[in-house]
Amino acid sequence: MRRDDRDDPFDDIFREIERMMEDMMADGQRLDRGDQSGFASSTHVDVHETEDAIRVIADLPGVEKDDISIQCDGTSVTVSAQSGHREYDERVDLPGRVDAHSGAATYNNGILEVAFDRTESSTNIDVQ
Rank of each mutant, 00 (worst) to 15 (best):
M1D: 15
R3M: 12
R3L: 15
D5E: 05
D8A: 10
P9V: 10
F10V: 05
D11A: 15
D12V: 02
I13K: 04
I13C: 08
F14Y: 11
F14M: 03
F14E: 12
F14W: 14
E18C: 09
R19Q: 11
M20C: 10
M21L: 14
M21A: 14
M24G: 15
M24Q: 10
Q29A: 12
R30E: 08
L31P: 02
D32E: 09
R33E: 13
R33V: 00
R33P: 02
R33A: 12
G34E: 02
D35K: 00
Q36R: 11
G38T: 11
G38F: 07
F39S: 11
A40Y: 08
S41W: 01
H44Y: 10
V47Q: 02
V47K: 01
H48E: 12
E51K: 00
E51A: 06
A53S: 10
I54F: 08
I54A: 03
R55Y: 02
R55T: 13
R55L: 03
V56G: 06
I57H: 04
A58D: 05
D59G: 09
L60H: 07
L60V: 08
L60Y: 06
K65S: 07
D66C: 04
S69D: 06
I70M: 03
C72E: 02
D73L: 11
T75Q: 12
S76G: 03
V77E: 05
V79D: 04
A81M: 14
S83D: 12
S83F: 04
G84P: 13
R86T: 10
E87N: 07
Y88R: 01
Y88P: 01
E90W: 09
E90G: 15
R91P: 06
D93E: 14
L94M: 06
H101W: 05
S102L: 01
A105R: 01
Y107T: 03
N108L: 13
N109T: 00
G110N: 04
G110H: 00
I111S: 07
E113L: 06
A115K: 03
F116L: 07
F116P: 04
R118G: 12
R118T: 13
R118H: 06
E120L: 02
S121A: 10
S121W: 08
S122D: 11
T123I: 15
D126A: 12
